[in-house]
Design a protein around this nucleic acid. Sequence first.
DNA 1: CTGAAAGCGCTTACAG
DNA 2: CTGAAAGCGCTTACAG
Lengths: 316, 316
Amino acid sequence: MRDSALVASTTRERIKTHAREIGYIYNRRAASLRTSRSGIVGVVVHDIMNPFFAEILRSIETELDRSRQTFILSNHYDDLEKQRNFVDTLLQLGADGVIMSPAIGTPPEDIRMAEDNGLPAVLIARDVEGAAVPAFRGDDSYGTALATRHLIELGHTRIAMVGGTDGTSTGRDRYQGYKNAMEAAGLSVDAAWRIPGPRTKQAGFDATERFLSLPGKPTAAVCWNDLSAIGLMNGLFRAGLVAGRDVSVIGYDDLEEAAIATPALTTVWNGQREVGHRAASALVARLNGEEVSAEQELIHPELRIRASTGKPHERN
Amino acid sequence: MRDSALVASTTRERIKTHAREIGYIYNRRAASLRTSRSGIVGVVVHDIMNPFFAEILRSIETELDRSRQTFILSNHYDDLEKQRNFVDTLLQLGADGVIMSPAIGTPPEDIRMAEDNGLPAVLIARDVEGAAVPAFRGDDSYGTALATRHLIELGHTRIAMVGGTDGTSTGRDRYQGYKNAMEAAGLSVDAAWRIPGPRTKQAGFDATERFLSLPGKPTAAVCWNDLSAIGLMNGLFRAGLVAGRDVSVIGYDDLEEAAIATPALTTVWNGQREVGHRAASALVARLNGEEVSAEQELIHPELRIRASTGKPHERN
DNA sequence: CTGAAAGCGCTTACAG
DNA sequence: CTGAAAGCGCTTACAG
């Protein structure tokens, strides 16, 4: 049943047909107990409901399907305890590996513990300093610099940053990229122009009022991601303002949804497909005993200009 | 380690502490091989990336977490072969049960096969005629009738139906509900006013042109779901039309996103949370040997009136 | 090349 | 009550 090359293919097919007829079910638990290979890969992210992760998951799925691995999914909602429980479950099931977007505050020991117990890990979207495992993510600081520079080139000088947190490497990198671009253009960065937090549509929507009452009335917003940007655009619309005309709004990720948003969202492509594909390939390679470099691999982001950004427009 | 009541709790704790110290990992494969209980539940839906299913999955997760079941997720993308592969995998892993939103065209034999091999099933969102298992979903025909009646009460007489297919019970039920409401109000139903297909934002967006060139220029659209409705609203906006003013658009599901859409979407609450919660509870009950009636349980939908519907407005 | 035996790590029924 | 043995269904190394 294992498609061994030692058995003639005609015999194999005959046996398989008969097996199917009598309803034989291969017991993977027993096989796994013996071989200590389970064919299971765990994937844990902050929230699969988030389209950003959903797009990554889809390409992971495609890749793992190809090597006939079953994958188990879990959300950790940035709760370390939930993440640990999931890793424990994987160890108990004898999973072959894990792909994770580590929860905020994940200590490198958590990753090392998994590795030491024979559960190779690969990181996506976020990095954990000190964890000697491969990591795949976008070049966040470069990406937000791209976004900020685009607004500066349009003539904006007062630019806010909406969303994100300093609790993750991604959050720090994106804020840094924004500051870099501002300073490189000789523009002052006002700490009050940062509205930390929003990462969802709802939160972006809720941040509208605060954005509109910011000191110095910024004319543009670099948003944490497409979700918060779309939420903000919806909030602005409720306030009678149209993104791209009255206020410039730029997102991050280039979700499938960005192109059909109202108005179409200018954003930065963050290579979700690439991240998922490469992470899964790297894990599969590790499972096959290949040596995979434990370095971070940064996907190069690209600007996607659409209708939500334009020349600055002063509000009263 | 199984928290048996036969062991004094102090002893248990002492052993557990020691076990943790020496890095003992409980082998669930071995236990499962012996007990033929795995603690694994499979969940298979059309597409987890779809927020409709994501909301259901979230409440399933909450419920299964409570009874300490691990769940394995899979998309079938309405591909019967993919669905069968997943069920096979569950059987091989000795999963305890499966919650499924059956792929279009799933024959009752597929469900029965799983059940006969000791894999109890519970259906969500869609039903399979002839499969004697519990099923949880909204009352679709009633729900679309609610939506259609709302438009009729606003004064609309030419109402289109955008999205859905006759390939599922849900599709047939929703179209039936729409027809029922139209006919009850003495309005004629024009088959040409049905634009079958769209179930995503992109597809709803793409359907805009066809909607705008429909014979008799309908003044309103009952959409398959919130996603296609939001896509259509975005498409209308590109054409210079605003939903709720120029054209009335009503969705279905009441996703979290509906309330913050632009404009806020009138829709029908479809009880995702309820469906997920009840389906998971029913499965857990079955796993505990309780008798669960194999009847369909219909969640009662409710109308949510927001800004995307209004009095009819003739276009030129 | 074929076939019987050992063993993966648990749980459970049973002997002491 | 305690402890040793059997067995879940595979795979693999080994004897014939």
